Simulated assay, not measured.
Amino acid sequence: MNGPTRGYWCECWTEKVTSAGGSARLASFDAYSAPQADRWVAIALRTISPALDSDASDEAWAWLHEERAETRRALMRSEPCTVTITHAEVRITWTIRPVLFLPLAHRQAAELPACADSFKPERAD
């Protein structure tokens, strides 16, 4: 079994900016390099930018053209990063955090840890 692998945990959250606002996680992604992590945000921003209001679109393109390089440099220094744009009454935030991914136990040709036998899944009635 291999040891931990360095990578980045990426999430996209939305939050209503009104007083009755709530938040929801839209997506998550496991990236194994800084370029892969910031590319995930870049693809999302390019994809949604035509549907954004002009201010939010400007924010998106400013990050893509001016701030993305600094985000990647920060990630390579193992610093967490956040990219946020606000469209109408919705704040969209992408977070990228350095993490260690732990290997999972392989189920074939390997002995599982003793605790695996004590797991009993709940039955849905």
Rank of each mutant, 00 (worst) to 15 (best):
M1A: 10
N2A: 09
G3Y: 09
G3R: 07
P4V: 04
T5A: 08
R6C: 04
G7R: 09
Y8T: 10
C10Q: 07
E11S: 12
W13S: 07
W13P: 15
T14L: 03
E15F: 00
K16C: 11
K16Y: 01
V17F: 01
T18A: 12
T18F: 02
S19C: 10
G21M: 01
S23D: 05
A24Q: 07
L26I: 13
A27N: 14
S28Q: 15
S28W: 05
S28N: 08
F29S: 13
D30I: 03
A31I: 04
A31Q: 00
A31N: 07
S33H: 04
S33W: 01
A37G: 13
D38K: 06
W40A: 14
R46P: 06
R46G: 15
S49W: 00
P50A: 09
P50D: 00
A51S: 06
A51C: 00
S54N: 11
A56I: 06
S57F: 00
D58W: 00
D58A: 15
E59R: 03
E59K: 14
A60S: 14
W61C: 12
W63I: 12
H65L: 09
E66Y: 06
R68S: 14
E70V: 09
E70Q: 08
T71N: 14
R72V: 09
L75Y: 04
L75N: 12
L75A: 08
M76D: 15
R77G: 13
E79L: 08
E79M: 11
P80Y: 02
C81I: 01
T82C: 12
T82D: 10
T82S: 15
V83K: 08
V83R: 08
T84G: 02
T84R: 11
T84I: 12
T84L: 04
I85E: 05
H87P: 08
T93Y: 02
T93S: 08
T95M: 11
T95P: 12
I96G: 11
I96Y: 03
R97K: 15
L100Q: 15
F101E: 10
P103T: 08
P103W: 05
L104W: 03
H106D: 12
A109C: 10
A109L: 10
E111N: 10
L112M: 13
L112Q: 14
A114C: 06
C115F: 01
A116L: 03
D117F: 01
D117W: 00
D117N: 07
S118Q: 12
K120G: 04
E122I: 11
E122K: 09
R123Y: 01
